[in-house]
């Protein structure tokens, strides 16, 4: 009796394992081969290849070599080629950056676009930003907001990276009592760390929660020794900031101005694995950022406030 039960259990486990494996293979095949009738039924709108293809056909504004609609059997690589690889967009933005930097500051207007359909919520941009700007604990210029939308089985997740919006009408600027924050001619809202008194009025005035107070926390707090990386100096605004010099002040994303000055795109743009973040000069009529903004898919967070963010999102 006992033996028989064990055999039954083993048999059941084997059947379950085989079924699971078959299902997994089927899913992989469906993702790589495009939505065949069976796969479409099984995966519905969650099919990555299908989603990529649709988005590429309908929404990508920059030139693409491949046809917009792919045969159902075309592999994923081809699907990616069809929508334009992230690299090609980055290369184009890089060229435009060099072009913009050749102009006087007041003639360029930086803007950022984030394609929510492409963002996979990997938070690579968040981490890249922290590493690039030597951010301490509790200071995160670009968190990724995660939302679950819909009801099962029609469920999806939306990832919304939230850098500083670099508002054209920034509510955080006029509240500063010591003129430590201002809007530059190129549209970037900057903070003068040498002037900031740390009153945090700008923090409460920001409708997007995009300003952070640097408490002086260290990653090694509570451990025996401070680590060398904590002693390294931050590069923001093209200056050399020691850890102590930015303690007690308010900090925020500044579109990696130090990188722009060196001819490089912001860290979040170059590290985005999905190619979801775009950056460029809004004053350049031929720029990719302008094409995207005019695509009809662009929207801004809390547009009703009239702050005119220079970060827009694509749906």
């Amino acid at each position: 009796m006992q033996k028989s039960s064990r055999r039954k259990l083993l048999r059941g486990a084997l059947v379950a394992a085989a079924g699971g494996a078959a299902l997994s293979v089927g899913k992989v095949a469906a993702i790589e081969n495009g939505p065949g009738p069976a796969a479409t039924t099984a995966l519905r709108t969650k099919n990555l290849a299908g989603a990529l293809r649709e988005r590429g056909a309908a929404r990508e504004p920059f030139p693409r070599p491949a046809p917009a609609v792919l045969p159902a059997t075309q592999p994923l690589a081809a699907a990616q080629a069809a929508v334009g690889t992230p690299t090609s967009a980055v290369a184009r933005m890089q060229e435009e950056l060099v072009r913009a930097m050749a102009k006087p500051m007041e003639q360029r207007k930086w803007a950022m676009g984030i394609d929510l359909g492409k963002c996979v919520g990997c938070s690579a941009c968040t981490i890249a930003c922290i590493a690039e700007n030597h951010l301490p604990p509790g200071v995160v210029y670009r968190p990724v907001l995660e939302e679950e939308i819909g009801l099962y089985p029609n469920v999806t997740r939306r990832f919304t990276p939230r850098p500083c919006m670099q508002c054209e009408e920034p509510p955080c600027v006029p509240v500063c009592p010591v003129n430590a924050t201002s809007k530059r001619p190129d549209g970037v809202v900057e903070i003068n760390y040498d002037k900031c008194i740390g009153c945090r009025y700008c923090v409460v005035a920001c409708p997007y929660g995009a300003r952070y107070f640097d408490f002086g926390d260290q990653y090694s707090d509570g451990t025996p020794a401070k680590q060398p990386y904590e002693e390294s100096h931050g590069p923001e605004y093209g200056r050399d900031w020691s850890r102590e010099s930015v303690e007690g002040v308010v900090r925020k994303c500044q579109f990696c101005l130090h990188r722009l000055n060196a001819g490089m795109l912001p860290a979040c743009v170059t590290t985005c694995i999905g190619g979801a973040t775009y950056f460029g000069d809004r004053n350049d009529p031929d720029s990719l950022i302008n094409e995207l903004e005019a695509s009809g898919r662009a929207f801004r967070l809390k547009e009703d406030l009239g702050t005119k963010p220079k970060v827009f999102y694509l749906l």
Binding site: V175, P177, V178
Partner: peptide, 26 residues
């Protein structure tokens, strides 16, 4: 004591930005 940089408090008095309510309050 609530300021992040107490040593710079003088800026509110000597180098204020009049667009801020805090400057007027001081």
């Amino acid at each position: 004591l609530d300021l992040g940089r107490m040593e710079r408090f003088w800026r509110v008095v000597l180098a204020p930005d009049w667009s801020s309510i805090i400057a007027w309050v001081v």
